[in-house]
């Protein structure tokens, strides 16, 4: 499944796009450019999902992350004035970056030192149909709880962003 020139080329191209775009989020000075790099990272990760034969997850990634979350972040950036669009670091940046580098070293050591028991052929039942069956049989309670969480987040976001004038109008009504 992963044999051949095509998947290898796709992997290296996607890895380059994803990591370079994530680095662009880190180094770009304008918050708007950082959001555009973030969208490119999301698209790269969706490509990885296709490569790992997770078609439905790739579609969900494109719709939710690229379609919804990125547009939400873009709106938040565009609705704040131009003066608050700088993407610079705090004075605690150096310890944070140092911590991330140390963590990366630990992760890479663990990943390359462990003898993973892997299979080369893709498992048979990774289709969207079996995902739907699992979500509505084994995982039906977490599925319903997730819908309650989404409703609570929706109502909470609307309540948080109301202006004082709107609240005064509601108090009068």
């Amino acid at each position: 499944m992963m044999d051949g020139f095509g998947p290898s080329l796709a992997f290296w191209v996607l890895a380059a796009i994803t990591l370079v775009a994530a680095g662009g989020v880190m180094v770009s000075r304008n918050l708007l450019h950082a959001v555009l790099f973030l969208i490119l990272t999301f698209v790269g990760v969706a490509g990885f999902f296709v490569l790992l034969s997770a078609d439905f997850i790739a579609m969900a990634q494109v719709i939710i992350y690229v379609g919804a979350i990125a547009v939400l972040v873009l709106f938040a950036v565009l609705l704040t004035p131009r003066s608050s669009r700088d993407n610079s670091e705090t004075r605690w940046a150096a310890p944070g970056i140092l911590l991330a580098v140390c963590l990366a070293a630990i992760f890479l050591f663990v990943v390359h030192d462990t003898a993973w028991r892997t299979v080369d052929a893709a498992p048979a039942n990774l289709s969207a149909a079996s995902l739907g069956r699992a979500l509505l049989s084994t995982w039906v309670v977490p599925f319903e709880i997730a819908s309650v969480l989404l409703t609570a987040a929706l109502v909470g976001a609307i309540m948080l962003t109301r202006s004082p004038e709107e609240e005064a109008e509601d108090a009068l009504a």
Partner: peptide, 29 residues
């Protein structure tokens, strides 16, 4: 051919980049 280690490496690097960004950025967004 890309194996499990390659994907895990990309995931680990992406995670650490995200950690560095969220620890060092001044803007809440």
């Amino acid at each position: 051919t890309p194996g499990l280690e390659h994907f895990l490496t990309v995931g680990a690097l992406l995670f650490c980049l995200g950690l560095a960004i969220s620890l060092s950025k001044r803007n809440a967004i």
